[in-house]
Amino acid sequence: MPSTDTVKAPPPDREPAVKKRSTERPGDRIFRGTAVGAATVILVALAGVAIFLTVEGLPGLTAEPDAMSGQASFAGYALRLVYGTLLAAVIALVVATPLSIGMALVISHYAPRRLATPLGYVVDLLAAVPSVVYGLWGILFLGPRMGDLFRWLEENLGFIPLFAGPAAGSGRTIFTAGLVLAIMVLPIITAICREIFAQTPKLHEEAALALGATRWEMVRMAVFPYARSGMVSATMLGLGRALGETMAVAMVLAASGTGFVTLNLISTQNPNTIAANIAREFPEATGTSVNVLIASGLVLFVITFAVNFAARAIVARSGKKMNR
């Protein structure tokens, strides 16, 4: 790789500077070299991915309708998939965030230590289950049970647009996919929140308790304000995971290709997610439809990037506020 070469070979005219540096310990030099090298590799890899997606995706932007499941323009095609992606991710977060925060609080502040440690392990273990397993579980276990629930929802709450139906008996809808995603992001959000909750300064917890706060009041007065930015970034990380998750969604969600932009959660009319759509369509794709899929991948790349950026900005801003 050319860029690492330039790091290794200092230009000869900077000889004196190099001499001065030789007072540096070898350990420092080796560490600095490795760190710079690693950082360069990461940047190069990231740039490589971005360039690949752009170059290969560009032809997809002007593809014929038959390469885009009959959509007239790429914007229309991508928009539906973006909607599907965001809908699944939002369902996942709406379910997972309160659960994770509750779980993290139980582990950090409520459960006795003998119980908290194993509970933490179990939650961490959820992160180690492969997505395929979640996919199977979603199809074979969760799906049928959700199907029954969907039929009930359609009959009794069908007047709410969310449950308009027709209910999918297999239960393999965006709602079920969102629930599976929720379980997959739960350990991420829980682990980060738990760490941050546990770091709340004793000083502030005791300030609240000494005023006669109950444990929950203490959590609201001392723990949450301290952990707010961490909770936001944990949620954003979970969102990143939910946006990009492919296998489980591709297996669980029986969405019809690009589908419709609809709020209906219990039928299979919703669009697929970008990642799952790529995974399903790619094996049969030829010619410009490959470019179309890659272009949709670029869209996902941009969204995930934006989410991470937003998370960092929020964390940086509230971090400043706490240290004032």
Binding site: L203, H204, E206, A207, A208, L209, A210, L211, G212, A213, T214, M221, A222, P225, Y226, K321, M322, R324
Partner: peptide, 21 residues
Amino acid sequence: PVAVRRQIGMVFQRPNPFPTM
């Protein structure tokens, strides 16, 4: 104990106002 602490206040070694308030 919560009721006890409401009647018997406490001031700590290091000042500990709530930072976000």
